[in-house]
Design a protein around this nucleic acid. Structure first.
Lengths: 228, 228
DNA sequence: GTCTATAACGAGATAGAC
DNA sequence: GTCTATCTCGTTATAGAC
């Protein structure tokens, strides 16, 4: 029985993966707004109703793709962090930034799915939150590890933001001064501004040597969060 | 005859505006990917073929909407700059940043159209470039005006980026040191990272007091380009 | 229990004849 | 410019194969 169950489970995993692969293909070709369960089923030689054994709805399929994209990016960031485990804080930070950029350049449509315009009529469920926060936590860890060093104290924080900053620090479980957490969240968002501008074409005719430019800007972000 | 021609011209302008208004409505409801000339025509009580007298194609209509969005944002940024003409460089910078954010929060779908994911199958023509560069030039002007002050010299620039930075400075017609131009382009992209994260939901459960957080981050960007 | 296939619904888009 | 016949879509109910 365990063999039969294993075979069934294996088949289920394979079909599920095939559905997501084909869905990703359509994502790249037509965009998330036009992702169609029927088209996915047709391409796989299945009937549309059969897909509902694997995903409860079109939005569920989208959610699965979103979570996988976040996880894939999170893994890439964590791998870069680990590969630079022995480096100084700033090169470790920039290594992760470059991994994020490389991932985005490699999977532009999945990047657009998670960091681009929201899909009309779709609202991401809370289930996406853990995967979405992985990249941020990689940066948080780098700053936390470097906390003993100098530099962090120089970050400013206006009085009106203090309570908000303390809440953010608590929510993130970060044993960091609120100045550092605020700077970190800002740098996190700014990093994706750099990546999005490159990927979405805003650097067209503005920045040519995008790799070097990005490296320089990422270093600036590292300094901005107090790394030295 | 001139009266008839004037009336015709006026009618043409009115119909063109009505088409764009309806298209913007659909943009908000269904997203740019599903913008359809037919649906626009139907909603206006016209027949789809009649629309082609006003826009040569769906992509042409999209281009017109994109240019208008860039221009509207550019005007908002310029107005904020002029309103803060007597302020010091940093508050002038943040005033423009806040105008950009306010514009985006007010017109999220037009913001997504120009700074969000590319529309599948659509490629923006060169005609969009002048409108797209207006916001950047506002920031460039603020930094140029403050150039005589201290601070700019402290900006670093790696040797590999020097020629790229000099080219950027020349392209932008900026009489600024290459360090400043590089920092400016980075800050420009990073600003839109902040706005996009807020607008596209990445700050959900992370940043609550978004207005104050943004104000603080925008000040940080001002310092990053050498303003004091 | 698990899966696939058939058929259908209501809504919307589309192509072409007129 | 209008109408109609024919597509697509998400989704569900149901029946039957393994």
């Amino acid at each position: 029985m365990s063999t039969a169950q294993g075979a069934r489970a294996r088949a289920r995993i394979e079909v599920t993966a095939a559905i997501k692969d084909e869905a990703r293909r359509q994502l790249a070709a037509e965009g998330a707004a036009k992702l169609s369960l029927r088209a996915v089923a047709r391409e796989l030689g299945m009937v549309s109703s059969a897909l509902y054994r694997y995903f409860a709805s079109r939005d569920d399929l989208l959610t699965a793709l979103i979570i996988e994209a976040y996880d894939s990016l999170g893994e890439a960031a964590e791998a870069a962090r680990d590969a630079a485990a022995d480096a100084a804080p700033v090169p470790r930070w920039t290594a992760v930034c470059e991994a994020v950029r490389a991932w985005a350049l490699d999977r532009p449509h999945e990047y657009a799915l998670i960091y681009g315009s929201p899909v009309p009529g779709y609202s991401a469920p809370e289930a996406t939150v853990p995967a979405a926060s992985r990249v941020g936590h990689v940066f948080l860890g780098i700053v936390r590890d470097a906390h003993q060093g100098p530099g962090l104290a120089e970050l400013a924080l206006p009085a009106v933001l203090r309570s908000e900053a303390e809440r953010m620090a608590a929510d993130l479980g970060a044993d960091l001064p609120p100045e550092a957490v605020t700077a970190l969240v800002a740098a996190w968002a700014q990093l994706f501004g750099l990546v999005s501008f490159e990927l979405f074409g805003q650097f067209h005719r503005v920045v040519e040597d995008r790799e070097e430019f990005f490296r320089h800007a990422a270093t600036g972000l590292a300094h901005g969060v107090g790394l030295r």
